[in-house]
Simulated assay, not measured.
Amino acid sequence: MFRAVASDGTPIAYQESGAGPPLLLLAGQANNHHWWDLVRTDFDSHFRTVTVDYRGTGSSGKPETDYSTELFAEDTMCVLDALGIETAHVYGTSMGGRVAQWVAARHPHRVRALILGCTSPGGTHAVERSREVRESLAQPDPERSRRALLELMYTDDWLSRNPATYNTLGDPDMPAHAKLAHLRASNGHDAWDALPSINAPTLVLHGTDDLLSPVDNAPLLAERIPDARVQLLPGARHAYFEEERSVAGAAAIGFFTER
């Protein structure tokens, strides 16, 4: 395990594996690098993959301050600097896609190509999840809330065939203040005005049955980012990158290797 140091002195843990052009993988809200465990080896065969434990997660520092997607983006830049990486492909999913928007908008010279997965632009232009979805996640019974999240991430068929530990349900060791800070950071995201400044080749990936981050956000992003294109994954939910691993992984690898 290695650590970079953010501009405010917070240690930011990172991990690297594989060989080839650098690829920065950014996880979802309140998750650490284990979010990518199931599919990381697919990318390691083609790229030098770099993951980050966001502040508040994993082995990174957990300061009791305000967090934001812009701050997470700057933390990732500190990691690339620590590794001596000038340019990298960037693939962000869920909140990681929100962070990736800022990385590409504010540091265009550092991003070779960009994939935004199951994410949204945030702010008033975003298509928000329904009240029913929000209420299902806010249930006081933790087991029922966990089940609701599982069903938003994966189809029933996937869950029946994979009754195992899931790496996409949040870092179980996060302190309460960090969980709240992550929630506020993701909810406060609004990159709408910055999206047209992204000049990296961009692919937007999204499952058609994603209710956690509704699929209508995909064309919004693609229309706002110059020359971006969309690929939808029929029947897939929020964790499309795992459930549709063969299709989504091939699409991502193909997109990056062409650039």
Rank of each mutant, 00 (worst) to 15 (best):
M1F: 11
F2W: 11
A4D: 13
V5G: 14
G9W: 10
T10G: 07
P11S: 11
A19T: 15
P21C: 13
L24V: 08
L26N: 03
A27M: 06
G28P: 10
Q29T: 15
Q29E: 13
A30T: 04
N32K: 00
H34R: 14
H34W: 15
W35H: 02
D37E: 14
V39D: 04
D42Y: 04
F43I: 11
S45T: 15
H46L: 14
F47T: 03
R48A: 08
V50Q: 01
T51I: 07
V52P: 07
V52Q: 00
V52R: 01
G56R: 07
S59F: 11
S60H: 02
G61M: 06
G61C: 10
T65M: 14
D66A: 14
Y67H: 05
E70Y: 04
E70Q: 15
T76M: 08
A82D: 05
A82Q: 11
G84Q: 10
G84P: 10
E86I: 13
E86P: 13
A88C: 09
Y91T: 02
S94C: 11
S94D: 09
M95F: 01
A105F: 03
H107I: 06
H107V: 09
P108N: 09
H109D: 13
H109E: 14
V111P: 07
A113E: 12
A113P: 12
L114D: 02
I115L: 04
C118A: 12
C118T: 14
T119Y: 09
G122F: 03
H125G: 14
H125L: 13
E128M: 14
R131Q: 10
E132Q: 12
E135V: 05
S136P: 09
L137M: 05
A138C: 15
Q139T: 05
P140D: 07
P142H: 01
E143Y: 10
E143A: 12
E143R: 04
R146I: 00
R147Y: 04
A148W: 00
M153W: 00
M153R: 00
Y154E: 08
D156S: 13
D156I: 04
D156N: 10
W158L: 11
L159F: 00
L159W: 00
P163E: 08
A164P: 13
T165F: 01
Y166T: 10
L169D: 04
G170L: 00
D171C: 02
P172C: 05
P172D: 01
P175E: 03
A176W: 05
A178Y: 01
K179V: 11
K179G: 12
H182V: 06
R184F: 12
S186N: 11
H189N: 10
D190W: 00
W192T: 14
D193E: 15
L195S: 01
P196D: 09
I198N: 01
N199M: 14
L203V: 03
V204T: 08
V204P: 04
G207V: 00
L211I: 11
L212F: 15
V215K: 06
V215T: 13
N217F: 07
E223M: 12
R224A: 12
P226S: 06
P226Y: 06
D227F: 13
R229I: 14
V230H: 08
L233I: 15
P234A: 15
G235P: 06
A236P: 09
H238R: 00
H238F: 02
A239D: 10
F241V: 05
F241K: 01
E243Q: 13
E243F: 01
R245F: 12
V247E: 11
A248W: 06
A248P: 03
G249E: 05
G254D: 13
R259Y: 15
